[in-house]
Every structure is written in structure tokens, then in C-alpha cells.
Amino acid sequence: MATTSGTVTEPFPISRVLNRFLLFDVDAISHARRAHNICGVLIGTIPNLSQQNVFLGVPLELMPEEARVLVEEGHAYIVDDVDVHQRGFTEMSREVRLQFVREMDEQGMQKAVENRNRLEENSRQALKKKGLNIKDKIAGKSSSPDPRAVSGGSVEGNPAKEGKEEEHGVGEDGEALFDQPRATVVPPPAKKLDKHYITPATSYPPLSAPSPPSPAFSPPSDLNLPTVPRSYPLFRYMHSHGYFSMPGLRFGCHYSIYPGDPLRFHSHFLATGMGWDEEFELLDIVGGGRLGTGVKKAYLIGGEDISLKGTSGEILGEADEKDAETVRPFCIEWAGF
């Protein structure tokens, strides 16, 4: 499948559902990974692979930290999905709805044709492999509807084509799209095209994503920024240095940090963000250090010296350049004498 991450226009929308940040668009997911070192956590079930937990699919849940970094740097903006859907679907007008249903139907039909083509291609291949008399098969097929002719659109008695045209005919009258029984169809041919239906991944279309807030107009204010935990400065610091982060719960830390895309690299650090003057148990260092060394990683703690940030507190957007001075990380390893 061709890469299409080029099609993402920034800023791209991040869905907010009850203060969780989700991405549903595959292109946006790929784009965030490639261009912004944001990998998030895939939490969805992959259709047809729904009996395992090793590979998961859309949606992608972003940590609030990740969403915040993306918003602060102007790559993304937050959309309140609940609000959008409440208005978009429960109040959807009849025209929009019919239009959408018709579009989905066409897509479904397309899928059905694709699917059949693939199946026939498969059987053709299988037959070829077995060295069976292909000619007979093909000869037999030429009288039956040929799926590829759909695009040509001139084969008589093609059920797909007929079905489709009929749908169109009814649909364009506008009234009662699905209510009329399809009684006019000629006796079903040998292989009727099974109608397919699609559940789309995103809601755009039929809804159009709310346009991003114009940056000149409204600089990101704390109000529409994701709330982040205290460990955020460390996350931002590591992110600004090109590291990838994943939630660190499995290792008892805030983030497990990767030197590159976790698809390819092992994690190097188990990171815990601390307050600058925060006191913590020495045992935490022992525990973190031993665990980290045990799994061939280093335990990393870091905090932000707020006193170095100047009096203005958090100046968003300018934080990146300052991070180098304000956040100090430390690596801890079990020396093993």
C-alpha cells in the first residue's frame, strides 16, 4: 500500500473524548510518527485480527504530553469530538444523510467488486499453479460476467453493474432510497455480487473537521491545551532531542524512552520526571536502577529548574530553546562491583 503521509495537512486535528486524546486517521498516525517522533499507543482492535493483543490498531491514544507537544508546536489542534458528533449526527439533515448513505453504498459496492476480483484472481492463480486447464475455465468465465468489465461498463447481464445502476436510479429520485423492493431484477445470474457495507474509520466525511483556530488570532492558551502531569518538562526535553516515548507503567516509570521509532529500536531509558526540589526516597533510585539495569536500560530521572525559567512562568512555544538549560536529566545504572 502506498504511503500517503504526504496528504496530511498541518495542523491536523486530534480528537478529544473525555480528556483522552485520540487519532483515528491512519495518515495522521503515520505522519506524527515520521515527522514528529510521536508514537502514542494503538488501542483499537484490528478487524479480522480481533483475537490477539500483540498487534493493535486504530485509534491511537496519545498521552496528554504528546498531544500538548503537538499543539504547542503548532502541528495539531484539539477538536472536541463529543461536541462535533453530538451536533453533526443527531442533527444531521435529511439531504446530508441521504447523500452520505449513498456514498457509503457506492464505496461498499466498490469493495464488493474489488473483493470478487481478488477472489477470482486467487482461484485463477491457484488453478494455474496446479496446471489445470485454464483455458476451459477462462472460456467458461467469458460467458459469465467478467468483473473487470465493470469498469468498461458494457457487458450485458453484469449483475454488479445492474445492481449499481439501479441503486443510482433510485437514489437520484431522492425519495425512499432503500424502501423499494428490488423486484425488477432479472432472475439472478449464476454468481450474484454480494453487497458490501463499510464502517468508516473516521467521521470526515460526512462531517468536516472543524477548521483549526487561526494561530495569528489565538495563540494556544492554557484553556485549550491538554493538561499534563508534572513530569511533562522531562518529556518535552527528551522529545526535543529526538527521542520517542511510550507510557512507562510496565517498567514502573513515567516513560520508556527510545532512541528512534520503537518499531525498530529498543528502549534505552526508563524515565521518571521529578520536581526540582522534590524529595524522594533513595530506595527509588535503587529500585529504578536495578530494574533498569536488569532489563538492559538506564534509569533516568530529570526535573525542571523553575528558577531558571524566569519570572514569566511557562512561556509556551519558547520553551524549546530554553529546555536545554532548564531541564537536567540524570542517568542511573547499577554499577555492579
Binding site: 484490528i46 457495507y197 464502517t199
Partner: peptide
Amino acid sequence: LEASRQAMHGVLSWTRVHTE
């Protein structure tokens, strides 16, 4: 890495299709 990302992109793009 690119191959892995492509594979991931491909799998994530699978559509949910229902047959009649």
C-alpha cells in the same frame, strides 16, 4: 524501518467491511 512503517500503515488502513 520504512518497510515496518509501511506494513503498519497498511494494516491500520484495513477497512471494516460487512458482507450482506
